[in-house]
Amino acid sequence: MTPAIVCRNLTKQFGAFRAVDAISFDVQPGEIFGFLGANGAGKTTAMRMLCGLSYPTSGEATVAGYDVYREQEKIKRKIGYMSQKFSLYENLTVRENITFFGGIYGLSDKVLKEKREAMIGTLGLSNEAGKLVGSLPLGWKQKLAFSVAVLHDPAIVFLDEPTGGVDPITRRQFWDLIYAAADRGITVFVTTHYMDEAEYCDRISIMVDGRIEALDAPRLLKERYHAADMQDVFYQLARKAVRSDN
């Protein structure tokens, strides 16, 4: 099977600052891949390059088999994206948001309607479907945003700190949605601050100062660093950082 994501020495340079420093890794189809790092470690920059939001300075990468330099348009059809900012339209209703995002991905009216109603049912939002998204609690918004990001059945979904500011119970529910998506064969590429979430991933990478310092299954990483939990692993690696927060 061809990997969902392939990175070889991917680098992004902003002037004298090397935000991402020659990172290399593969992500397998259907995998939940955790992308960890302290603030300013370069996670978001790396993710933006993979999503086609910015061009790499050097190195190579393919997403869903397409080249990030030349085939950005093809990549866009194959991926879903949820940013760390909440990113649905607050003054549109739940239903209108789903219709809009389904629409710009070119879903047909019939398919869109089926998917929309199914999604509203799954999320238990039947009573809120006609309400403005701005009036929903944050946790519901995040779940909705995720569902919208995978509405068009992408090969890979990129989640940039999707659970920021959400309570633990809602985070757990959010991860149920992630597992459901992975079961449907969607590759999940997720950045997070929460170390308990890191445990939910199949494999994780930890970025320090633009480089990937460690990459493996959470269990193996804990063994290697003789750590009780991921928090400890992360701490051991991240304290080597010389860069401060940006």
Partner: peptide
Amino acid sequence: TGTMEILLVSPF
């Protein structure tokens, strides 16, 4: 609000 990123990541 961040919706622009979503639009730019989409095929639109």
